[in-house]
Structures are given as structure tokens and as C-alpha cells.
């Protein structure tokens, strides 16, 4: 579904990805782990098409097609989703209006009128169960995008957007960092649900906190801008026990 071939990415004149190779198959759950600064977030942002992340070598294939030079909105329309590690705040942009727009993008359906009550009704109709599962109430829809959100709320809102868009592949950049145990459990349950609903997951994690919540098919270790090792669950266990040095040698 997603294949990276020798991906090299430069950010502000510094090469961060130095030839990363990766393949993620449809319907699977893949994990990327690696020490801080190894290039995990750069990989996520480059695959999503951030303009400041310049691809200077290699290619990105999604469903067999080369998407290396496509703009980010086109990649999203093809079914790629990125849950950000640090989502930005967008002042004044109402949650209900925004989610309704995302749903409209996917389904072509719209609220009855732009009146707030109709927009909220529309969003609740489409996403109500997910909001509830994430522990959000209707009042949440009155807020502005990520403004004043706690760390956990931000991560959960990223997950909610994933369900609004129903992508084919979701890359989640550290959905488990900076969240409390309760939120971690909620996120774990919802990601498992995403898998049930047919969304392929590529999880980037520093802590590995979500590992036990999901049936992980494959684990990749990133170090210094490259995927240096790939394997099954045993690779994750070995690294948890003995650290990244295990695969560096």
C-alpha cells in the first residue's frame, strides 16, 4: 500500500532522511520505533507532503502510484492521513464547521443549513459514536481547532479526524506521547477499531506504549535517517529489553 524507495529528505539544508526504505501492506499494523532525532517525524511529514520537507532523492509510492511530487491535499484525497505529533491551533475555526467540511469532502453530504445547530446535528449524526468513544461531548464541538486543548485532547482529536475522513492508510506520529493512562487506553481501543474498519496503520512511537493495545504485524527500527531493521513482535521485545543497540551492531 505504501512503499518508500531510498527516500532522502532535506529540511532547511540538513539532510534528515538518508535513504529510507519501507513497505506497508494493506490491512496491516506497522510500527516505526527509533531514538529521538532519528527521522521518524520527518518521514511522516514527508510522506504527507509538507512543503518544507524537500525530497532530494528516492520515491514515495501509494497504492502503486508515485505520489512523490503530489500536493498534500491530493495525497489526502487518495486516502492518506497523518495524525500530527504536534497539531497546530487554528484560532476562530469552529470544530463543528471544520468536521462538517471534512465529512462533506468525503461523502458530498452537507448540513441542512450553515446554522450552528444544523451543523452540530450533522456532525453528531456522522461521528457521534466516535466522539462518545473518545470521551468528547457535544460541547466539544463549540471549541476552536486545538485551541486550549490538553495534550490528550489534541491526540484524540487527531483520531476523530481520522474517522471523519476514513483514509486507507493512517500514519500516526506518536499518538501515545504526553497522554495519561486513561487517554492511552482510549486511543488504543479506537485504533484497534480503525483496524477492524479496514484502515491500515503506520504507527510512529517513541515509547511503544500502544504496542500492547494492537496486533502489530511488523516493526521497523529507524536510526540516523534510515530503516535499519525490520521484523516481527520479537524485534520489539528485544529492543524493549536491551535498547536500540541490539539492532545497531
Amino acid at each position: 500500500m505504501l512503499r518508500l524507495e531510498g527516500l532522502r529528505v532535506r529540511v532547511e539544508d540538513r539532510e534528515i532522511l538518508k535513504g529510507a526504505d519501507l513497505e506497508v501492506q494493506r490491512g496491516q499494523v506497522h510500527l516505526i520505533i527509533g531514538p529521538n532525532g532519528s527521522g521518524k517525524s520527518t518521514l511522516a511529514l514527508a510522506v504527507a507532503g509538507h512543503p518544507a520537507y524537500e525530497v532530494v532523492g528516492g520515491r514515495i509510492f501509494f497504492e502503486g502510484e508515485d505520489i512523490t511530487s503530489l500536493p498534500p491535499d491530493e495525497r489526502a484525497r487518495r486516502g492518506l492521513f497523518l495524525a500530527f505529533q504536534n497539531p497546530v491551533e487554528i484560532e476562530g475555526l469552529n470544530m463543528a464547521d471544520y468536521l462538517a467540511k471534512l465529512i462533506e469532502k468525503r461523502t458530498g453530504e452537507k448540513p441542512l443549513t450553515p446554522l450552528r445547530e444544523h451543523v452540530v446535528e450533522f456532525v453528531m449524526e456522522k461521528l457521534g459514536p466516535y466522539l462518545e468513544a473518545l470521551g468528547f461531548n457535544e460541547g466539544f464541538l463549540d471549541r476552536e481547532i486545538n485551541v486550549g486543548f490538553s495534550g490528550g485532547e489534541k491526540k484524540k482529536f487527531e483520531i476523530l479526524q481520522m474517522f471523519a475522513l476514513r483514509p486507507k492508510l493512517a500514519i500516526l506520529d506518536e499518538p501515545d506521547s504526553g497522554v495519561d493512562v486513561d487517554s492511552l487506553n482510549v486511543i488504543g481501543r479506537l485504533l484497534d477499531r480503525a483496524v477492524q474498519e479496514g484502515i491500515t496503520l503506520l504507527l510512529i512511537t517513541h515509547t511503544g506504549g500502544l504496542y500492547r493495545h494492537l496486533k502489530v504485524d511488523r516493526v521497523h527500527v529507524m536510526y540516523d535517517g534510515r530503516i535499519v531493521a525490520s521484523g516481527g513482535g520479537d524485534l520489539f521485545e528485544r529492543i524493549q529489553e536491551s535498547g536500540f543497540e541490539v539492532v545497531m551492531r
Partner: peptide
């Protein structure tokens, strides 16, 4: 740029 990218990465 970050705000723009955030929204565009959602398909807008």
C-alpha cells in the same frame, strides 16, 4: 505554512 499544511493534509 504549518496551519495551511495541517488543513491541506486533511484533503482541503
Amino acid at each position: 505554512e504549518d496551519k495551511l499544511f495541517y488543513l491541506m493534509s486533511r484533503g482541503l
